[in-house]
């Protein structure tokens, strides 16, 4: 099998690159998400701690850089994984039919991953828009949002994002990894539960902050 001259067709490695782009961007986003969770949770230690953290990030330009990079990586992630989403009606129908007939958990999990991905696209954009419109970051502002209209919004975004991240990590480990699925599922499940707790703690703290004021 001689090497095909690349001039005759697309780069034969393009599918590998897309796959790697999806993998790396996904892992970076999960890192971003989890770092974000811990930074957010500083509010549990009190509003001043949170505000101090926000000022610190601002002083070293970490916020704009982080948000900018996050957006870029997010864009790459969307572009590299969107090709997987079945768009046509027939494709949709056959996908659902396979999942339903097989009653297969991991196929359903994947469909849910696509759906949560789309929801994140909308909700996360809204979240970023709202936060940026109200810059700089302050505990009081966040607390106000949580206390007024946004609590259910954030709970939904949180659950959806954590599911998407967890399922994504699990799937990537299964696809690339040396480990059996069960152990991967257990490890990822534990990590997600932990992060979810931290996040809900933060949310609760914001909510309390609002009530106290």
């Amino acid at each position: 099998m001689p090497d095909k001259p690349e001039a005759l067709g697309p780069n034969p490695r393009v599918d590998l690159y897309l796959e790697l782009a999806g993998l790396v961007s996904g892992l970076l986003l999960v890192t971003f998400l989890w770092v974000h969770a811990f930074l957010n949770a500083t509010v549990i230690l009190g509003a001043p701690v949170f505000d101090g953290m926000a000022r610190f990030l601002e002083r070293y330009y970490l916020s704009p850089v982080g948000i900018g990079l996050g957006l870029l990586v997010g864009l790459i992630h969307v572009l590299s994984v969107a090709r997987r989403i079945p768009t046509g009606y027939r494709e949709q129908r056959s996908l659902w039919r396979v999942a339903r007939k097989l009653r297969h958990a991991d196929t359903y999990a994947w469909i849910l991953q696509v759906i949560t991905g789309l929801i994140i696209l909308v909700l996360a954009s809204t979240h970023i828009w709202v936060v940026l419109a109200d810059w700089p970051l302050q505990a009081a502002k966040s607390a106000f949002r949580v206390q007024t209209n946004y609590l259910s919004f954030y709970i939904i975004l949180l659950l959806v994002a954590e599911y998407h991240a967890g399922a994504g990590i699990y799937r990537q480990f299964v696809k690339w990894g040396w480990f059996r699925r069960r152990s991967v599922a257990l490890a990822v499940g534990t990590a997600v539960a932990l992060i979810l707790t931290v996040n809900l703690g933060g949310l609760w703290a914001f909510h309390q902050l609002g009530v106290a004021r």
Binding site: M1, R13, D15, D106
Partner: peptide
């Protein structure tokens, strides 16, 4: 040479990890 046969969307990089 295996990459030529399998390293594409119709080969291993078409797998979405559904595990059916």
């Amino acid at each position: 040479q295996y990459f030529e046969v399998l390293g594409s969307e119709n080969g291993i990089y078409g797998c979405m990890g559904l595990m059916g």
